[in-house]
């Protein structure tokens, strides 16, 4: 039998400059099967093939800066082919502005601040994901952090807005805290949480 129907699973852009689409392979009955991705840009009759099947790994297609435009719909279809025939995915329309999901914030650092106050507080700071060009204003990121004691389940969440530093007050006296940070563009999707950063709060009571 010919291959089953493949499906486009998602398309994401980490920085509003490039994007990648992934698909799920279909049933092939064990026959060698190849996949091709085709797309047609809004206002164009020309059907083009995926420019790069390698950069983003298996079952994916990567569009570099030159091949990425925004505010223009890409109509995308994946075709599975073996010696018995072909099958097409349902086409998907995407506009890159609505699939922006940044990489996680980097270099998350937590410092215990004592100063004059008898109760210390935590100063959490981080950097933007390296590839996001926030400096030019092309992408605007807002941040969120969450914190919990290592032996507890409940996270406490804080919105940091566009700032890359946030002070968390009144931690318990003594204990290990876990902190994670994530970001999202002004009109896009949350990144993954950063790997946890641990901090030891001294006994101060």
């Amino acid at each position: 039998i010919p291959p089953g129907k493949p499906s486009l699973t998602s398309c994401r852009s980490p920085e509003k400059e490039t994007f990648t689409c992934w698909w799920k392979p279909s049933y092939t009955g064990g026959l060698p099967t190849t996949y091709h991705l085709y797309y047609r840009l809004e206002n164009s009759e020309i059907v083009r093939e995926c420019p790069d099947y390698h950069t983003a790994g298996q079952n994916s297609c990567f569009f570099n800066k030159n091949e990425t435009t925004i505010w223009r719909t890409y109509n995308i279809t994946v075709v599975a082919t073996n010696r018995l025939g072909s099958n097409y995915s349902d086409p998907v329309d995407i506009d890159v502005v609505y699939i922006v999901q940044p990489h996680t914030p980097e270099n998350v650092t937590v410092l215990v601040m004592k100063e004059d106050d008898p109760v210390p507080y935590l100063r959490v700071s981080w950097e933007k994901p390296r590839n996001a060009d926030t400096r030019s204003g092309w992408i605007t990121l807002i941040y969120q952090l969450r914190i919990r004691m290592k032996n507890q389940d409940e996270w406490e969440e804080h919105d940091a807005g566009q700032q890359k530093v946030f002070n968390v007050f009144t931690p318990h006296s003594g204990g290990t805290y876990m902190v994670q940070v994530r970001c999202r563009p002004d009109h896009g999707l949350w990144s993954e949480w950063s790997p946890p950063t641990y901090v030891e709060v001294p006994d101060y009571l």
């Binding site: 926030t134 400096r135 605007t140």
Partner: peptide, 24 residues
């Protein structure tokens, strides 16, 4: 779509004029 364009253009202008470039 048009309001996204407007927002994007204004945010580029905002960062160019910003007194707090660290926020961009």
């Amino acid at each position: 779509r048009d309001s996204h364009k407007i927002d994007s253009f204004l945010k580029v202008l905002r960062c160019r004029a910003s007194k707090r470039p660290e926020m961009c």
